[in-house]
Structure formats: structure tokens, C-alpha cells
Design a protein around this nucleic acid. Structure first.
Lengths: 234, 234
DNA sequence: TTGAATTATTGCGCAAGCGCAAAGATTTCG
DNA sequence: CGAAATCTTTGCGCTTGCGCAATAATTCAA
């Protein structure tokens, strides 16, 4: 991992990061100046599940995949994030180890802060801790909800929910619908939904035949969101 | 729900609540004095999923079941808590609505604080927010883990995990093993594990025949934790 | 450009576990 | 105490969706 000091960046974007909410622009600039720039090549990891949790990151360029392994090598994909998203937030909660792995899907650039650095900012700007709490609460809610879906809903409902969530988190409007441009494989979608790549392939094909989506190899376009919602809701 | 002011209680116990970690005993007493005592009968609710989230609670007496519903009335059981556990922590994160329901399994007594009251304590004792963040991070981790288990493991593994988790959270040592004394029904266990009461019944019976557990109607005793771990790990 | 690697599709058989039904056990409450 | 309610067990048939295998399509790298 190469590292550097931050030189000149578009500070306007930083203000929109939820962790910095209600901070003055001066404070935001001060915080960002204190971060180290860290670059990681495609396929490499910012951290691996079980590593000592010592740094929190703000992604500037690229895409990151957050995954969790179990004992026998099976993994689930928890989320895929893009620029101006935080990862490793757990560091603010003073947890010992990262509970997930963060893999660069493309060549990535991120800002990194150490735990002690973050704690200094917390004592100077107390709203920092409350913002972090708010973000963590949203994660808890999301995972509770996904857990409930996993426990009570069938694969087709869950996959439809996954597509809709991805579309709302990072979908782009195009002529024929909403494009999910995350280069997710059938295996990735299976790991997000709790099923196999075979079942994902069969369902996507079926929905494509029904005109609900266009499932090109890596670009999925949702043509009929309403129809997909009906499937998601059972 | 009847309510009252706190009169005389065993303050020593309050010090052990994780949210109050590193607070002076004087501060703990001040915080607890500010809470209102709220009693709820067995079968009633402190709050229901979707209610405006206006109060955080510290359970003093009884047991509370936290559940989440989905659209068609199916529910999952997220956790069962006992005395000196917090619930409704989400209020500190300034989230609009409770994402779960809190049902009294027995006649219960709890201390309740309003959001504005909590925010005052946060500004006076900044470590409050960090402690809340830490607790919320532990929840996130637990739900991530349960999500992964739900997605990748089979029912028998998950049920064994559930029993082991319950034993470690609230098990009591008895002559023949570790007693889980939460009066959980087969349906409750099914809702925690993501399966049906039938499958729970069959598995418990099977494990009882193998001498791993004693599954009385409402008391489950784990006689052979090691054997159960082997099942949990596959 | 060509061969290797990765990803997607689809047929097929099978196992896990769902869920109805019926009977029995235990608890609750008037 | 006795009736109603709740909880548990177990047989049985059936559905979901897993997962191997073979093939095809696409991408990557040299």
C-alpha cells in the first residue's frame, strides 16, 4: 500500500460525508488534512478480517467490496461502496479487530486516520461521536432487516430486494431504466442474497424474459421497478 | 404503562451497565435519578416497531423480547434480555422510529429517559456517546455474523450456534451442565434461528437422544458443550 | 491474435427442511 | 378443579433450491 499526504482535493465533496455533518468547512478541511492518502491496487486489500483495527478510511477513488468469511472459506458480500463512503468505521468504536475484509475492486485511493487521531477529533468536535453513532445505528438497522429477510423470505424475494437496494444506493438513470453499474458477478449477487450463483442466473434469466430487467454480463438494468417490487414483496 | 420516579435502588448494579463505563458513581446516580420508572405487565409492549422513538430504557426487573415483523406477519426474534440491559438504544442515535418491538415476557420494571434528557447527558459527559457507539458497534457485529450464518450454514449449525450464544449470554451453571432459563418455546427458537418450530423440535429431540442436551419443556440444559460446538462448526 | 482464465447458462437428480395434521403433554385461569 | 389455551412431538408428502456437469460466452494477457 503506497501512502502520502493529502495535497489538493475537492473539499466541497467532503462536506457531504455524513460523519462530517454540522462540522464547519474549516474543521472538515483540518480533519482531511490530517488523513494520510493510501492507494491500493485492484485485487489487493485495505484490511483483512481479523487484522488489528487501527485505521478508518474514506474512499476517494475506486470501489471497495466488504466481505465476511466463515470457517470453511464460504463468504458473504456485505456491501460494495464507492467514492466518499467510509469504511473501517468500527475503529471509532475502539473494537480490536476488523470484522470484515475490504478488497479493492479497482485501483483505489482513500484517506486514512489512526484511532488516536480520531479520538483527538472526537474530543475537539463532540458531534463527531454522535455522527458515528448515527451511522452505526443505520448499519445495525440494515443488518437487522437483512437478517429478517434471510430468515423469513424466499430466494426470489431476497434477490429482488437486493437489486432494488443496489439500484437505490448506486443506480444511474439510463434510457431504458435504472442501471446497476457495479460489475457484480452472479456469484457476488449470490453472496449478497444468501443463495448460489446457479439460482441467481436462473432468476435473472427468468426476469429478463419477463421484461423486468436487462441482465447483460455485468450491467443490470432494471426496466420495470414496479414489477420487481411486487416480486420483492412476495 | 404505569410510571413513577426512582426512589431507592441498588446503585452498585448500575455501575456495571456498559453505557455508564468510566462514569463516576455520582454521575451514574445523577443519571439514574433523572430516569422515570415504568412498569409494564406481562404480554404488553414498551414500544412497537414503527412507534416514534422517544425513550431509551434500562430494564430493572423482568425479561424483554425484541422482535421484528415483516409485511406478512412473520416475525423474527432478535434477542431476549434480562435485568440491567438497555433497550431502545436507537434513541441515542436520533433515529425516527423504533425498528423493533419490545414485549414484556414477565411483569417488568424499567428506567426510561427521553431523547432530550439523553442529549443533555451526552454534552455533559461526552464519554456517553462513545460508550453508546461501542455498544452499537457490537450489535452491528453480532448481526453481521448472524447474517453470514443464516446465508451460509445449515439449520442444525445455526440452531447449535443459537443455543451456545444463549448459554454464553445468560446461561447458569447447574449440576448437569449449563442451564438456559429463558422459557423459550420451540417457536421462539425457530424465530431466532430462521427455521420452523417443527425442525427445532426434531433437532432438540435428536440431540437429547445423543446426550448433548436435556430439553425439558422450557428449560434447556447443555450437557455436552463440546459436542454442540462440533455441530455448530459443521 | 490466440490461448487461458473467468463467468454464465441450463439440464438433471437429489436432499434439506417446510408445513399440514393429529395426538399428546403441560400450563393457565376462572 | 376443570376447561381452554398453549406448547410439543412425530408421521408424511412435497417444494425449494442446491450443486454437479457440460457447454457456451466473454474477458484477459502475452
Amino acid at each position: 500500500m503506497k501512502s502520502d499526504k493529502l495535497s489538493s482535493l475537492d473539499y466541497a465533496q467532503f462536506g457531504k460525508v455524513p460523519l462530517f455533518k454540522t462540522l464547519s468547512m474549516d474543521a472538515v478541511i483540518e480533519v482531511c488534512r490530517a488523513g494520510e492518502v493510501r492507494k491500493v491496487d485492484r485485487g489487493s486489500f485495505y484490511f483483512i478480517q481479523g487484522d488489528i483495527a487501527d485505521q478508518m478510511y474514506l474512499l476517494l477513488v475506486g470501489r471497495i467490496k466488504l466481505t465476511q468469511l466463515n470457517g470453511d472459506g464460504q463468504q458473504i458480500l456485505l456491501r460494495v461502496i464507492g467514492p466518499y463512503s467510509l469504511f473501517g468505521l468500527i475503529v471509532m468504536a475502539q473494537v480490536e479487530q476488523y470484522p470484515v475484509s475490504a478488497e479493492a475492486l479497482e485501483d483505489c485511493t482513500a484517506l486514512a486516520w489512526t484511532q488516536s487521531c480520531l479520538m483527538q477529533f472526537v474530543s475537539r468536535y463532540p458531534v463527531f461521536a454522535l455522527n458515528a453513532l448515527q451511522m452505526m445505528a443505520l448499519y445495525t438497522q440494515e443488518f437487522q432487516e437483512r437478517l429478517r429477510q434471510m430468515a423469513t423470505e424466499r430466494v426470489e424475494n431476497r434477490l429482488a430486494h437486493t437489486l432494488l437496494r443496489l439500484a437505490s444506493q448506486s443506480g444511474k438513470k439510463v434510457a431504458t431504466g435504472v442501471l446497476i453499474d457495479l460489475r457484480l458477478t452472479r456469484k457476488d449477487l449470490g453472496e449478497m442474497t444468501g443463495t448460489t450463483l446457479y439460482t441467481v442466473s436462473r432468476l435473472l434469466r427468468q426476469w429478463e424474459n419477463q421484461g423486468l430487467i436487462t441482465a447483460d454480463r455485468e450491467h443490470i438494468i432494471i426496466c420495470n421497478p414496479h414489477g420487481l417490487v411486487r416480486i420483492a414483496e412476495g
